Lab assay of single mutants.
Amino acid sequence: EDYYQILGVPRNASQKEIKKAYYQLAKKYHPDTNKDDPKAKEKFSQLAEAYEVLSDEVKRKQYDA
C-alpha cells in the first residue's frame, strides 16, 4: 500500500504536512482510544510505518525511487 495514501498527503508533501497528518491520524486510530475496533491497531501500525519512512529524508528518497 502507498505510504502517501495511508497518511493522506500528496507525494510532494512537506515534512511539516507529513508530521501533521501523522499526528492527526495517530490520535484518531490509537489503540487506546479504539479498544473495541480490532482494525485500529493494524491501521495505527501502518501509519507508524508510513511515517517512519516518509519522515526520514533518506528513507523517503529510497521509497520514492
Rank of each mutant, 00 (worst) to 15 (best):
D2G: 07
V9R: 01
V58G: 08
L25Y: 04
Y29R: 03
E52A: 13
D64H: 03
L7V: 03
A26G: 06
A50Q: 00
A40K: 06
Q24P: 04
V9L: 09
E52Q: 08
K41R: 13
K27G: 09
E49N: 10
A13V: 05
Y29K: 04
K16A: 15
Y51N: 02
L7S: 00
Y22A: 03
E17Q: 12
Y22M: 04
K59W: 05
L7C: 02
D2F: 06
Q62A: 14
F44V: 05
E57W: 09
D37Q: 03
S55I: 07
K28W: 06
K59C: 05
K27A: 13
G8L: 04
E42F: 09
E57D: 12
A26H: 15
G8R: 09
R11I: 06
K20H: 14
G8H: 10
E57R: 06
L47I: 13
R60M: 01
E57Y: 07
E49Q: 14
I6P: 00
I6F: 05
A48Y: 12
F44C: 05
V9I: 09
K43Q: 06
H30P: 05
L54S: 00
Q46T: 08
A26V: 13
R60V: 01
A21I: 05
G8T: 04
I6S: 04
K16Y: 11
Q15G: 07
E49F: 06
A21L: 03
E17Y: 06
S45R: 10
E49I: 14
T33A: 15
V9S: 01
L25T: 04
S45G: 13
Y51M: 05
P38H: 07
Q15F: 14
L54K: 00
K19A: 14
Q24H: 13
Y29D: 03
E42P: 04
Q24E: 14
V53S: 03
V9H: 00
Q15R: 09
A50D: 00
A13P: 01
E17M: 09
K43Y: 11
V53N: 03
D56E: 03
A65P: 04
Y63I: 02
E1F: 12
V53G: 02
D32E: 14
S45Y: 15
Y4V: 00
K35I: 10
S14N: 10
P31F: 06
A13C: 07
P10C: 09
P38W: 06
A50G: 02
A21R: 07
A50L: 03
I18G: 00
K19W: 13
A65Q: 11
P38C: 06
